[in-house]
């Protein structure tokens, strides 16, 4: 989103649509990444090699039980709330309502912060060690990568809010449009992870 050309005499719409395409293409890569993660999850679940998807109890330790998927859905819900706030901001800037823009972006930023803290907690409080079987491996993969996604979201929404605050979106607002694309994907990918984790 922060990219611009040094061909300086171009109309913002042209630059905006070019940037949108660029971001969508980068998302294609991220989507491929997320889908292969889902593939990993269901492949290992289907294979259940040595019955170690969810290891049964042994003398040394009790059986590994899957975590409820509610925390994952909660993170998704918080992110979805952030998305709504961003939509609200976007509506504001479209209607030349700068206050609404600032408010919406601030709420979106806060939502991303809450989500990331929550996600961190889920990871830190998980009752597993890393080598507790394939389900647990996948659990960590999903939550850690979602955490990274959220970190990116915090960065982007921080920028978006700050730039709104500085009044940079008075003349044109394609940045805000593009940030929305990211937000949508953030929510969808988080939901994909939560969906998978709902089928331990």
């Amino acid at each position: 989103m922060s990219v611009q050309t040094h061909a300086h005499h171009e109309h913002p719409d042209v630059v905006g649509s070019r940037n949108r395409l660029g971001v969508i293409l980068l998302l294609v890569a991220d989507i491929a990444f997320a889908l292969s993660m889902i593939f990993v999850y269901f492949y290992l679940r289907g294979q259940n090699v040595n019955n170690m998807w969810l290891p049964a109890a042994t003398e040394k330790r009790p059986a590994i039980l899957p975590l409820s998927s509610t925390p994952s859905w909660t993170v998704t819900a918080i992110a979805a709330f952030g998305l709504l706030a961003h939509f609200y901001a976007l509506k504001g800037v479209r209607a030349a309502n700068q206050t609404q823009l600032k408010l919406g972006s601030l709420v979106a930023l806060l939502a991303s912060l809450i989500a990331i803290v929550y996600q961190f907690n889920t990871i830190a409080n998980a009752p597993f060690t890393f080598s507790d079987g394939a389900y647990v491996s996948c659990f960590y993969l999903f939550t850690i990568l979602n955490f990274v996604h959220l970190a990116l979201t915090v960065f982007i929404s921080l920028g978006n809010w700050n730039r709104s605050r500085l009044g940079l979106y008075v003349a044109d607002h394609w940045h805000v449009d593009i940030v929305r694309i990211w937000w949508v994907w953030m929510v969808v990918s988080s939901a994909l992870g939560a969906f998978a984790l709902s089928y331990p």
Partner: peptide
């Protein structure tokens, strides 16, 4: 983790 370690359910 054990994504590829068969002893831990990997493949």
């Amino acid at each position: 983790t054990t994504f590829y370690n068969t002893r831990g359910g990997g493949s």
